[in-house]
Write a protein that binds this DNA or RNA. Structure first.
Lengths: 203, 203
DNA sequence: CCATTATTATGACGTTGGTCATAGTCTGCG
DNA sequence: CGCAGACTATGACCAACGTCATAATAATGG
């Protein structure tokens, strides 16, 4: 009721959001529709009303939402870079740091929902697989643009963005399995110089 | 019966092997015990006999097997490197190539079983999660040793191995979602120079 | 105030999954 | 032969899931 800064979300939005949360914690198979409704504090009857396409539709929307969320993180972290030190390595470190904090704060309960959908549905439901592909694209696109803005040559922006997302995704996987953030920090430290070197080659 | 080069596997081994195959294709949740027995052409009754610990035990053994399999791949590809060009980038490219061929040959049906178990069970069954962690360690260890043998300083062997596994794992995820191997080749190409540069710094 | 639509409530159906119980078959050895 | 032990066969149980059918309630606009 109280209309503060954070706007109030509709039940439908909450369900998509909750689906993404549960999926990235438990996987697609272990996430039930009833669980989603309960987690979103939304009526169960609304499921078939808002998502007549069933679970496939809900999973698809959840992963799409996750892709846009990741993209927002990129542009936000780019904007937050200090004016006197805007190197690609700083952007990558900031992104890794955000995931790292999330791991620590939640005791490694959450992974990436896009990864979860890919692993669980890549060979089953094609709609979910293509949604995951779009989510990855939606994530890499602003990242490539950010790299170019930071001085990386156009030709390498996209490939380095792919490398960044790959490393982040893999390190997140390892960190979650090991319940230890060292994989994340290692990737950030090792990849930083490579990213900054790409700026120099523009010369 | 006929004792040729490929030895014959026991029903128990076949079930562990089949479990890994099905898990990396469909995920842990979507892989049923009955499916595993059928895929292994093993009697269903043997499940409770060989795996009294139930599905958890089977999943754990499958991911452990996968870790050892990945480790074997590393040492084998290291040994197969040409004598006149033994750079870390060649080893990484060979590993990536193996996954790439597998993706293409199976129309991107399979991912990594360790990733699947991590995504599906990290927050549920702790035994599976620790098994996945051990599998990652079992994979990285010979990789770090290989890098050192190729001239990488001891201090960086482990961290670069982590970076390699992370990138490979993440690129595999993206490639599977996109049904396109470009993420895998990109990672291989971009990371190669960095790996070789680590040899030079030994000077 | 009514009618039409949007939303929510609830129970049931059919399937599938993991697990257990029980009994059967095979194997080797004394 | 006969009897352990290892292995296999099979059906039942219970819980959970996605989906559907049906009805009730709220919101909206004329």
């Amino acid at each position: 009721m109280t209309e503060q800064g954070t706007r109030t979300y509709s039940p439908r939005e909450r369900m998509v959001f909750s689906a993404a949360q549960l999926i990235r914690r438990d996987g697609v198979g272990a996430t039930g529709m009833r669980d989603v409704a309960a987690h979103a504090e939304a009526p169960r009857g609304s499921l078939q009303h808002y998502f007549p396409g069933g679970k496939d539709q809900l999973v698809g929307e959840a992963v799409t939402w996750a892709g846009r969320y990741a993209a927002r993180r990129v542009t936000r972290n780019l904007a937050a870079l200090p004016a006197d030190d805007r190197r690609p390595s700083r952007l990558f470190a900031a992104l890794i740091a955000q995931w790292t904090e999330e791991c620590l704060a939640t005791d490694f309960a959450f992974g990436c929902p896009v990864a979860a959908v890919t692993v669980d549905c890549a060979d089953a439901t094609d709609s979910a697989r293509t949604a995951a592909a779009r989510a990855f694209a939606c994530w890499r696109e602003p990242l490539a643009a950010a790299l170019v803005e930071l001085g990386v040559p156009d030709a390498r922006g996209a490939t380095l963005a792919t490398l960044m997302v790959s490393s982040l995704e893999g390190a997140l996987l390892i960190s979650r399995a090991e319940r230890d953030i060292s994989a994340l920090t290692t990737v950030s430290d090792e990849l930083g110089p490579l990213l900054d070197a790409a700026v120099m080659t523009a010369r």
